[in-house]
Design a protein around this nucleic acid. Structure first.
Lengths: 206, 206, 206, 206
DNA sequence: GATGAATGAGGATTCATTCAT
DNA sequence: TATGAATGAATCCTCATTCAT
């Protein structure tokens, strides 16, 4: 009405709306799963209206994909960077940074993403591919490279290379699934991973 | 009117209907997950009408529970019986029957059940408990008992007992999840499990 | 199989099956109303299978109509016969047999029929007509006739005829509805009807 | 394509939607009863989509309760207010305002509510209680109070108090039921109520 | 941009009715 | 006759998506 009314109507308009929505969606998916999450829940969590969600994400499925990629992207690079740039001896690296990393995975958003991929993956092959290339392949590659370096440095014996990198991650995987399913049943997941690392070291060391 | 109308409207009438429905439901859940499966899908697969499903299972949830328990019950007893009644040396048993068993799990219905538990478990705590008691606890118990026997026989050293039984199963778990998510990506899951058994044997043997 | 087997397979086959079914249906309708009653309930109450019901009553609606007519027919004739054949003075008849009859109506199956007619009547005009002709018209006619007789005998004054017979029944009606709706709220329905009769007598008497 | 498509897909947007829906529901329930009314009918009558009904009323039952309370609340207060604030002599009041009120009840929405309570009451005890407290108890209380006042003023004799207030309403009740069931059968319901009032006056007057 | 009322396509569940046995 | 398994049409209710404001 008035000429002077210079306050923009929607001053809270944020640039990071998409991110906020994705975060809210992630929280909702984590809690109830994809199918059981209503767009309304997401909007409420994000503090916006249902309709606005659709301004940024055309469909619920779009939102789902964004969420998965989002979480993945925000986590993986730094992690793998760590592995690649370490100066520690192989043994110290395994017992130190790698173990620490693995220990925190089962309780992290990555576990949620795994759960979502297990549930919804079959309906989203592109998402699975994305995840494989950006997380799994890179992670396994990093471990393989690490073992190779250990061999080159003489810390590991030659046959070390025949061990699949998945073996490093198996207890982490089991711990993750355990927590997803049996949240309340006790299990010393840290010790599980430690034992595995020790076993592997015993096998790999020259 | 038509030359041959050979389709009787009322097909057959059996008491294995419940099992047929459960089987159809298992197949449907395996393919699309619980939430995305329509009762109609199940009925169609079972070759019956939607309504008949409800004669045997009061709700979709009932059907779900029946399916899970069904698969579990039909599998577990024999398997664990095997473990308990073996006469082989510990080493031979690990490399033989146990490894064989583990190798076939990731491709078996048990993997599907795991998928369902991961997706729907949080909404069905009683099912999780059932699964824990009837499968997990018993399986872990069997392994623990097996290790104990190995120690008693002098095949394993005393410290063997400190290894959590989960360690035996970790690669099996990883293989299972791998297949559930990355069905088409290659992974020599058998070798993974073999390596783990060898590593464990190397650690456990007196 | 054996030649001697002279026992008929269904020896309990009764001639009064239709009646039994109607009784069961009446009980079920009384308890849950027409819409909420399942044919299965009726069959169970009658101690027969669902299918057999359809041998005697083509549809649920048929059954409904049979039930209403049934109850009506079985009750009305004797009742009205009473009124018509009395030898008592008008006053004694009102205070005696008529009052007694009215007192027991609100708790009788007639009340249930009224309830059914109120609920389902609009969908069954023929039933309403049937009820009107066989119960209401006859009942009112009997009262009218009774009053006429009273006038002829000099027990009632001439103007007595201007009173509509419905007035005799109004408290009975109210009592019936009261019980149907407020089963548990106290109301001395007997006194209500007594007061009305006394009032009417005071008005009618010469 | 078409020459004129003038129907907007999204009609209007009001806050009187709840009332509109309740009105539509009332009409539908009045016509077909609660059980036989489809939410779709209600929506169609209200000119909205089925889903919108659920935005305002969580379940069909909620809608039902809202409808009943709605009708009741909108009517009762003024009516009972009338009774309480009158300055007329008891006799004039009975013959005037009270009679007028009673005469219009059998054709009013209140009759519909009665029908609904008779049909569905047993399944909705809370509704029955609500109705009892807000309509019946208050109505009867008002009549009782009115009689008391008449006695105090010397218009009625002492024994007047022994007459249950229900007696005033009995012909109204009968008229209501009569219309609900025998809509088309003639009955001078007004005269019925007038006669009752006259009879009562004859009894009550000092 | 933002809202949330409104839509409508399903999906779970019920139940009158049918029919093979 | 008698059974009850089987059918399928109907009905309540949910929720992703749209759009008037």
């Amino acid at each position: 009405m008035s000429i002077m009314s210079s306050q923009p109507k929607y001053q809270r308009r944020k640039e990071d709306r998409p991110q906020e929505i994705a975060d809210a969606a992630f929280a909702a998916f984590a809690e109830k799963g994809y199918a059981a999450t209503r767009i309304d829940d997401v909007a409420k969590r994000a503090g916006i209206s249902k309709g606005l969600t659709y301004l940024y994400y055309k469909t619920k499925e779009d939102l789902f994909k964004a969420v998965v990629k989002n979480v993945v992207v925000r986590r993986v690079d730094t992690l793998i960077g760590n592995v690649e740039s370490t100066n520690l001896s192989s043994e110290d690296f395994l017992r130190g940074p790698l173990l620490d990393f693995m220990k925190q995975v089962p309780g992290s958003p990555i576990a949620i993403v795994i759960r979502l991929l297990i549930s919804e993956g079959p309906r989203h092959p592109d998402l699975v591919d994305y995840y494989y290339e950006n997380v799994v392949a890179r992670g396994l590659g990093a471990i393989r490279q690490f073992v190779t370096r250990g061999v080159e440095r003489g810390e590991f014996h030659r046959d070390a290379l025949q061990y699949q990198p998945h073996l490093f991650l198996a207890p982490m995987m089991l711990s993750m699934i355990w927590r997803l399913i049996f949240a309340d049943k006790p299990l010393d997941t840290d010790q599980l991973m430690e034992s595995q690392i020790e076993m592997l070291l015993a096998q790999l060391k020259a």
